[in-house]
């Protein structure tokens, strides 16, 4: 991996696991902007994001990062993790996230055990944990999954606010959500 003046820069990236399934893909992400990877199911959006996070293999091209860049990466975790006896507050503390700044409607979730939360409530806490962690770039994979309309509206607010101080890379199948965030859209196609 080489260094970049952008936060993150993909240069003709071809990535996958056993073989390349996405790319060549090129784009850059800077602080203060939201980039949304857009494409049909199975086009490799998540794989491209995983390649940036180190969870997928780069077969050709490059992922360049700014020196010292701190990245958080969230995707939907299996609901079986809810059996782990962790409170909402402890979940946020794992990423050094700011629990005090959590919106008032979510504050009651802090004292509850994860098994007492709905899938949507857990998803909101996980997204918040990554969004407010002390990082330069936030990568969110399908953040609106399981989240109701009020939760989606809340996510729009907090992601838009996060843009002020960091870059946000997003994978979402929800076009209205992406457009409401005024995100720059990068089309992704399967090889």
């Amino acid at each position: 991996m080489t260094l970049s003046s952008h936060c993150i820069e993909l240069d003709h990236l071809e990535a996958g696991y056993d073989r390349a399934v996405v790319g060549p893909l090129s784009f850059a992400l800077d602080a203060g902007e939201i980039v949304a990877l857009w494409g049909p199911n199975g086009s490799g959006k998540t794989t491209a994001m995983n390649a940036i996070g180190g969870g997928a293999r780069v077969f050709a091209g490059e992922v360049r990062k700014r020196p010292g860049l701190r990245v958080s990466h969230q995707h939907q975790n299996p609901l079986s993790l809810r059996d782990i006896p962790l409170s909402g507050r402890e979940l946020l503390a794992l990423t050094s996230s700011d629990a005090a700044a959590l919106p008032a409607s979510l504050q009651p979730l802090l004292a509850r055990r994860l098994s007492e939360l709905s899938g949507g409530q857990l998803q909101l806490l996980q997204v918040w944990a990554c969004l407010t962690a002390p990082v330069d770039v936030v990568m969110l994979d399908e953040p609106t999954n399981n989240v109701d309309a009020a939760g989606v509206a809340l996510l729009q607010q907090v992601i838009a606010r996060a843009r002020d101080s960091r870059g946000v890379l997003l994978v979402s199948h929800d076009r209205r959500f992406v457009e409401a965030l005024d995100a720059r859209i990068v089309e992704v196609y399967r090889r």
Partner: peptide
């Protein structure tokens, strides 16, 4: 403790932090 919990609850976050 924190590292084991972080790796379990946020595996992608853990990996992305190197």
């Amino acid at each position: 403790s924190g590292k084991l919990l972080l790796e379990r609850m946020f595996p992608d976050f853990f990996r992305a932090r190197g």
